[in-house]
């Protein structure tokens, strides 16, 4: 019995490989196109960030943080953190990572929020995609790293795709949560005054769900950041690169510094993304 079981192996892996082969032979142009667009997006964004002189950009970040949060402590912290990163010599890598994180989040929002809305409106759809979302978050990253590598080649794009796969469940779930928790009374108020479906979406559902969706986006940013090292494995530039290199050469000093830069960036992003306290508003 046992022998029979092991001898008649179901060729699951082979099937998937064949499927990927099929995609590469017949859909290559599609993947090339996606690759081109996403590569352009990241490349452009990185170039823009690096074009600005570092000290000026740091000042701009601090200014934006001040305008949004009005907190002296936060501004001081951001200045210190970014100057430290620059001092360590990781300015360029930090900007590359920032670019990857932002592009991944951008894709996640553009794709994830509409999916979340659609799922909130159609319970069957949510039932359908929930296991897929669970899968995307639990399956070891390396497993889908290989097919993305095959489909998109080496570089920033497979890094981005893997990051998106890992982080997109957060905005989908939280958008779904936000929209489906709109109180029926508010829907009725909208309908009673003649709101169309679109008006209901933009004037009732989205405003109500906005805080939850924002939380989803913040989560998405943090999840994306946690993928930088993995992305570096498939050739994406950024702070992951020195970490991987340090790992390969057992370079404690370099590993520590690069790791510190990642942590610092994570804290900065987290603090900046936190919703500012709304004045005198409960709930």
């Amino acid at each position: 019995m046992y022998d029979w079981l092991t001898e008649h192996k179901i060729p699951l892996g082979i099937w998937l490989r064949d499927f990927v082969d099929l995609l590469t032979t017949h859909g290559q142009s599609v993947f090339d196109f996606i690759s081109l667009v996403l590569g352009g997006l990241i490349g452009g964004f990185t170039a823009a960030l690096l074009w600005v002189p570092p000290l000026l950009l740091i000042a701009i970040f601090a200014l934006v943080a001040w305008l949004v949060h009005r907190s002296v402590g936060l501004v001081v912290f951001i200045l210190g953190a970014l100057l430290l990163v620059t001092n360590l010599g990781y300015w360029q890598a930090t900007m590359e990572t920032l670019s990857l994180v932002f592009c991944a989040t951008f894709v996640c929002v553009v794709v994830g929020v509409p999916i979340g809305i659609a799922a909130a409106h159609r319970p069957w759809l949510y039932t359908g995609i929930r296991p897929i979302l669970d899968l995307m978050q639990t399956i070891p990253t390396f497993v889908y790293l290989i097919p993305t590598l095959v489909l998109f080649g080496l570089g920033a794009v497979p890094g981005l795709i893997s990051t998106v796969i890992f982080s997109i469940p957060a905005p989908i779930r939280l958008t779904h949560l936000g929209i489906s928790s709109v109180p029926p009374a508010l829907y009725e108020a909208g309908k009673a005054f003649g709101a169309t479906k679109t008006q209901l979406l933009f004037k009732v559902e989205l405003p109500h769900a906005l805080p939850t969706i924002m939380a989803g986006i913040t989560q998405c940013i943090m999840l994306s950041l946690s993928m930088v090292v993995i992305a570096a494995l498939v050739g994406a530039d950024g702070l992951g690169k020195p970490v991987v290199r340090a790992l390969n050469s057992v370079n404690i000093a370099m590993g520590f510094e690069a790791g510190l830069a990642i942590v610092v960036l994570a804290i900065v992003l987290d603090r900046v993304c936190k919703r500012p306290e709304r004045r005198s508003r409960k709930g």
Partner: peptide
């Protein structure tokens, strides 16, 4: 129906039904 809801019939709710973000 939409025309009627917009122009002819309006409604006041027990729990007010106001939009808190406005």
């Amino acid at each position: 129906l939409r025309d009627i809801r917009m122009n002819t019939v309006s409604m006041v709710f027990q729990q007010f039904g106001l939009l808190p973000w406005r």
